[in-house]
């Protein structure tokens, strides 16, 4: 591998490649964390309109919900802020088992 290449599993490189193939893409980014959170601020999950995804914003706890929201964001063209945590009402359905809280920004790639 050349030092000037991005690694094979690079979410942002994937997002660019997908968009250049003509797929509709959204990028989800962890923008804030409180308590113990599995992925650091800046971590990405990239999603296409069919629900394919790469990367992660948690340890797999909330990815399903983020993918569903991202498909809506792709359809509406409007960015959205999501919050997940055990204190939320959604915790029964999707929450972080580690007890932390995260804020995830989802934006369409256009």
């Amino acid at each position: 591998m050349s030092a000037n290449d991005l690694p094979a599993l690079d979410e942002l490189a994937t997002a660019q490649a997908w968009a250049e193939e003509g797929r509709k893409v959204a990028i989800a980014t962890v923008v804030e964390t409180w308590g113990s959170a599995p992925r650091p601020v800046g971590a990405h999950l990239v999603i296409d309109h069919d629900g394919h995804f790469e990367g992660s914003v948690s340890g797999g706890c909330v990815e399903g919900e983020v993918v569903a929201e991202a498909i809506e964001v792709i359809a509406s063209g409007k960015p959205k802020m999501l919050e997940f945590g055990v204190a939320d009402e959604t915790a029964w359905r999707v929450g972080l088992s580690c007890g932390g809280r995260i804020r995830v920004h989802v934006t369409p790639l256009d």
Binding site: L6, A15, Q16, E20, L109
Partner: peptide
């Protein structure tokens, strides 16, 4: 996010900047 901005960002990252 604009695709153009993503391209710029990825180019900087690929150049290790």
């Amino acid at each position: 996010m604009k695709l153009d901005n993503l391209r710029i960002l990825n180019a900087e990252r690929a150049r290790r900047r």
